[in-house]
Nucleic acid binder design. Sequence first.
DNA 1: CCAGTTCGTTACATCGTTGTAAACCAGGTA
DNA 2: TACCTGGTTTACAACGATGTAACGAACTGG
Lengths: 347, 347
Amino acid sequence: MRPRLKDVAELAGVSIKTVSNVVNDYPHVSGETRARVEAAIAELSYRPNLSARSLRAGRSGVVALAVPDLDNPYFAELATNVIEAADRRGWTVLIDQTQGDRAKERVVISGIRDHLIDGLLFSPLALTGKDLAGRDERTPMVLLGERIGTGRSPYDHVGIDNVAAARAATLHLAEHGRRRIAAIGVQRTAVAATGRLRLKGYRQALAEAGLPADPSLIAPVARWGRADGAEAMSRLLDSGAPDAVFCFNDTLALGALRTLLKRGYEVPGDVLVMGFDDIQDGRFATPTLSTVAPDKALIAQSAVDLLAERLSGGTDKAHEVCVPHRLAFRESTDLPGQEHPRHPAHA
Amino acid sequence: MRPRLKDVAELAGVSIKTVSNVVNDYPHVSGETRARVEAAIAELSYRPNLSARSLRAGRSGVVALAVPDLDNPYFAELATNVIEAADRRGWTVLIDQTQGDRAKERVVISGIRDHLIDGLLFSPLALTGKDLAGRDERTPMVLLGERIGTGRSPYDHVGIDNVAAARAATLHLAEHGRRRIAAIGVQRTAVAATGRLRLKGYRQALAEAGLPADPSLIAPVARWGRADGAEAMSRLLDSGAPDAVFCFNDTLALGALRTLLKRGYEVPGDVLVMGFDDIQDGRFATPTLSTVAPDKALIAQSAVDLLAERLSGGTDKAHEVCVPHRLAFRESTDLPGQEHPRHPAHA
DNA sequence: CCAGTTCGTTACATCGTTGTAAACCAGGTA
DNA sequence: TACCTGGTTTACAACGATGTAACGAACTGG
């Protein structure tokens, strides 16, 4: 079996506690004893039992990150950043995939892993305020991205200003003189707060630019995947072509781009395409994808910091962190005055 | 504080063990007692302490998945599948990112999380056989993808036939009559067994097709990202254009594709492009990316199954599982006789 | 009516660790 | 010599859950 403190203690001829003291760098251990214990530890290649430790300490050093789907590059990149930020604090990250499914999301917040995780970083899609209200508030939770419920929630939240970002993105399209600017990403069924906020920003921009709000230019989707974007774009083209399209995330945009190119439209010549999230794929698509770039590293870092504050018994008041974003103008919107190598085959 | 068995027991007026029996569906509990206990559990919303359980049981129900980088869609998709397969067994997955860094990989296999995880699913990049030899064999480990060392390793391994797959992919390019078939993905510095195997398959195919092995057509890269592929393609074009390119993974291929289109080449007209991994991005690139499609779900499932067998004290002999793959021919290689909508702007 | 069986419940020890408090052993002071 | 002081080490009791063995009660059959 695996060696325990007891085995090390016997081999070194000291008490269990002394070994524990050595392991934990307790100061008052004589050099000679320490050496003997360390030799014994090495010989048996002893490793502390983390389960016992966390039972004793009431802390496990593990936090959970719950996201809809790692297949989605945005969440994969977010997870990468979260894992790195957690690592800096010596935490381990455990990942739950909810598929954006309400039942699964409910399981995640229900404390199913209570006592295994010290905290939860949660990126919800389908939960309502009611679901949250029923939650036992034992394990601290920080919400990422989507804010749940309309009122003041008791949970820390990290996000970006979706309305402002969507507004700026849409305005950018309008500044190119485009007048039929479509939007892809509204979700009819789900709670989809994020989608609603981006829609709001889109509408604000249209109004600001003096453009009519044509409902036929708003393409609903079931999910935010590439296939959904492709299919939605197809519908838009069938029902009267737009001259620009703002997609609520990059995977939708890549899908839309695919449809456009496949059907012979030139991007950005015929249709401008703007995405949201700044996933890596967009930087290597042809044309490269203009997008809203949230500071993902900062989102992850802020979330981990908030959680750490909660864990150390910090403030009661729920914090609301708004992480900055910037717009990345690339070939798919071909901003004049900036250098953008046109695809020569189209030139 | 959080309720323990003891609190529930007191509330229900029974012993701790009886509550435990109810929680664990132990058969011999009278209906009346069970009801009372369940009521108490609900009232306190008691949750078992998983740390205590795993201390007692010697099992945590947590397995670790160590991959280079979730940013890479291949590993993100693999992780998705692993999490699903683990979920079916009631396991939780904890993710380590190694960045393909040898030091970090060594930490992962060194049992740093001994006793927290029951098993390890490991996708190594940089480790040598020597690193593995020094490992304490306490936590069962299953290797994914890369096989380590040349001889028989004591570890279970799940992978695909890289040589055969690369050979088939390259032959497909040759069958189109292309004679200057480049390869992107050789890594000079690292261990990179996978890259070597795919190179071997590539060479076999060239020989088989009676094509000369021109070393200037082999483009080395530092890593397997999009930027590396783009840059390698650029070098290939500068040093005498190839008429087809086999990339050792899809991100390299997407990078290469980007460079080709940016520099005015037509794909597949001027240059055929073939990738490896079948990540989702490739299906929505323009042109869509032909690729080798390993059965990722089966890889994940097999790995989890092997680990489960080890955990239940299974066989001593190391298992070697070879998961089937298929070739996905898409627009970037434009297989004649198959329907492939050409990009109308190019038609 | 009692031995034997089953059922429901319980006390206890244990998993491996660490905080607490107390014991121990110098060496120095009174 | 007796006492104190400080560093060093130790015994013990938790943390919360569960397997074991044993208990009393209710039931069976002879």
